[in-house]
Amino acid sequence: MKFYLPLIAVASLSLLAACNKNDEPEVVGGPADPMAAELANAAPVELPPSVKANKQYRCKDNSLIFVDYMSDDKTAQLRTEKGGTATTLKAAEVGQPFTAEGFEVSGAGDDVTITVPGKGAQACHV
């Protein structure tokens, strides 16, 4: 039994020594990127704004208007129905009214004035 242990150890070491005997050179870093210069000089990517607040307004004519205010404070999404299509409204500067295609939301917070095509401007509140 004492004779077999050294023989097994020598056999297993010789098997391990034969591993990874590859004559091919190992490539470190991979091939050159053909767009590396373009990517280095590209303008930074700006992510779209996220939703900052969701408001549901009841207007003077008893209609509901749904407005999602975005984190950039220059964009809002307006819907006239809960699951309806959103209209993107933009403000020229922070604090200015959000406008687009006949829609306008002016004011801030819980009391605003909303204009929708086909209706005049009306006071709306949360």
Rank of each mutant, 00 (worst) to 15 (best):
G107M: 07
P25Y: 06
G118A: 02
L16R: 09
Y4G: 09
G102F: 07
R79I: 00
N54P: 02
V67C: 07
F103G: 05
A121W: 02
P48Y: 12
M35N: 15
A91S: 04
F66E: 07
A11P: 04
D68P: 03
A53R: 14
G118P: 02
E46T: 15
L78I: 05
A11I: 09
A100S: 15
L15N: 03
F98V: 03
L5S: 12
D61N: 10
A42Y: 04
L13G: 15
A42D: 15
T88K: 00
L5Y: 14
S50D: 14
N54H: 14
L16F: 12
D33Y: 06
L7E: 00
T87A: 09
G107K: 02
D110Q: 10
D68C: 03
T85W: 03
P25T: 05
V27N: 08
G120N: 02
A36G: 09
F103T: 05
A86N: 05
A92D: 08
G120F: 01
T85C: 01
P49G: 11
N22L: 03
S106N: 13
D68M: 08
Q77L: 15
N41I: 07
G120L: 00
N22C: 08
N20K: 11
L78F: 01
A108N: 14
P97W: 00
A42Q: 11
V67S: 08
G107L: 07
P97A: 07
K21Y: 05
I8L: 15
T87W: 05
S12I: 09
G95H: 09
P34S: 07
E93V: 04
Y57K: 05
C124L: 00
V10S: 09
K2S: 13
F98E: 00
D110M: 07
N22V: 08
D72Q: 06
E38R: 09
A37Y: 10
L78R: 10
E93N: 10
G95W: 03
C59V: 10
E26N: 15
G109E: 05
E38M: 12
A100V: 00
A37G: 06
S50Y: 06
P31Q: 14
K52C: 04
F66H: 11
K90R: 10
E101V: 10
V10A: 13
F98N: 01
T115C: 01
K2Y: 07
D23W: 07
S12D: 08
G30S: 09
V126K: 04
G84T: 06
V28R: 13
T113S: 05
S12M: 12
I114M: 00
Q77S: 13
V67E: 06
H125Q: 04
Q77N: 15
A43H: 11
D33Q: 11
A92E: 06
K119N: 09
G107W: 06
K60E: 10
D23P: 11
L13Q: 07
P34Y: 10
F3P: 08
C124E: 00
S71N: 11
V28M: 13
D73P: 01
D110A: 08
L47R: 12
D61C: 05
Q56F: 03
Q56V: 14
F3W: 13
L39T: 13
L16H: 09
S106E: 15
D61T: 05
K90Y: 06
T87N: 10
N20E: 00
K60S: 05
L64P: 06
L78K: 09
T113N: 07
A32P: 08
L7K: 11
A18H: 01
P48I: 11
K119A: 11
V45Q: 12
A18P: 02
T113M: 04
D73T: 09
Q56L: 11
I8H: 03
C59Y: 02
A100N: 15
